[in-house]
Amino acid sequence: MEEFIKVNDVFYQYESFDEETDAGYALCGVNMTIGRGEFVAIVGHNGSGKSTLAKHFNSIYLPSAGEIFVDGMDTADDDCLFDIRKKVGLVLQNPDNQIVAGIVEEDVAFGCENLGVPPKEIRQRVDEALRAVDMYDYRRHSPDKLSGGQKQRVAIAGIIAMEPECIVLDEPTAMLDPKGRDEVIDTITRLNRERGITIILITHYMEEAVLADRVIVMDSGKVLTEGMPPEVFSQVELLKRHRLDVPQATELNHKLRSCGYELPECVLNAEDCAQALYELIKGMSL
């Protein structure tokens, strides 16, 4: 896979860090590569540095040391600022606080307007973006009448209208109910599959992380482990030690497997788990 984002030994120190505690560094030596068109989930507990890292991908924060390249452009290079932000959009956690305009379609247009796109083209892009997140019917609505999941999809549409290559989502589902969470996750997986948009999903919901091509686990400002979901989630003890959850299916499978039963190395959802148990039981009763 072609390399799209490269993170080179990045450190980040908050300006207002507390001198009494020496936890001044939110990131201490992060290295990672994100491929073009990849769907990566970055997980970790609160304070692991995952949200700080998210804000580095489009130059909202700049590394205190180390460097980040987006499609070959250094995020610290002022001349590239708008090019980088055009390529990498960021969706934040609180859906209310990132919608600027009082009407859905005007909010979606906001980014394009800033980029100086001609009016006719903005119209097309906005309609298209709203269709992509399935919010076209709500284009004339006021955002405060929408549900959390709908607002978050409007925020995503606002990024899509700018035609980015990559969307970074910083805990986009943390404030949503299960239905809203499903809506948002469905939308981003679809954008990744159908349009090849690179997705970086920051989350602490493991059920969401299992959907990614690759999972990166962060802890104390560093990358703890990474790999395809089954590789990562098979390390149940490691994850638990670092205050992370595993899906109940994965945990049950792991517990039984460590008792010596012949089960797959890792299962990620209820269906696979039930199937594996079924095969185990059938196999043993023969």
């Binding site: 945990e251 049950l252 517990k255 209820a270 269906e271 039930a274 148990l277 039981i281």
Partner: peptide, 29 residues
């Protein structure tokens, strides 16, 4: 339903007569 309950329900549907009134991973185990 909780994922763990779902697993037991699916098993039951496949014809395995386990107790499906399961609410935690420990109970399922």
């Amino acid at each position: 339903v909780p994922q763990i309950t779902k697993i037991m329900m699916l098993l039951k549907e496949k014809g395995i007569s386990v107790n499906e009134n399961i609410l935690t991973t420990e109970q399922a185990f």
